[in-house]
């Protein structure tokens, strides 16, 4: 079923998603949107791993996806906690206010 689409289709799609994530992290200024873009990068990787895994009849890639999901959840939990403490101090989620540290 998955093979009806050629493998390089998945490769292109996930590279495209990954690039959207990267560009989002680099150019968006709202911390929550940036978090979403990081998630997009990680999910692009998940898609790529699952498709490689399905095409090569090797289940390692699918197991790896679980690791990524768990770690991504932990990462977002910590990221949101940091964001909440920033919001308490500066009342904003715009990362341009984070400019206290300069040399």
């Amino acid at each position: 079923m998955i093979e009806t689409i050629p493998q390089h289709g998945y490769l292109l799609l996930s590279t495209f998603l990954f690039c959207i994530g990267v560009i989002g992290v680099l150019f968006r200024r709202n911390a929550i949107i940036i978090l979403m873009c990081v998630e997009l990068m990680l999910n692009a990787v998940n898609l790529l791993l699952v498709s490689f895994s399905a095409y090569s009849q090797n289940s390692d890639g699918q197991v790896f996806v679980f690791f990524i999901m768990v770690v991504a959840a932990a990462e977002v939990a910590v990221g949101l906690a940091l964001l909440v403490s920033i919001y308490r101090n500066v009342m904003s989620t715009d990362i341009n206010v984070l400019s206290k540290l300069k040399g």
Binding site: S14, L42, V45, S53, G61, F64
Partner: peptide, 8 residues
Amino acid sequence: LFGIALIY
């Protein structure tokens, strides 16, 4: 991760 996925 993207690097690991490509190598995989």
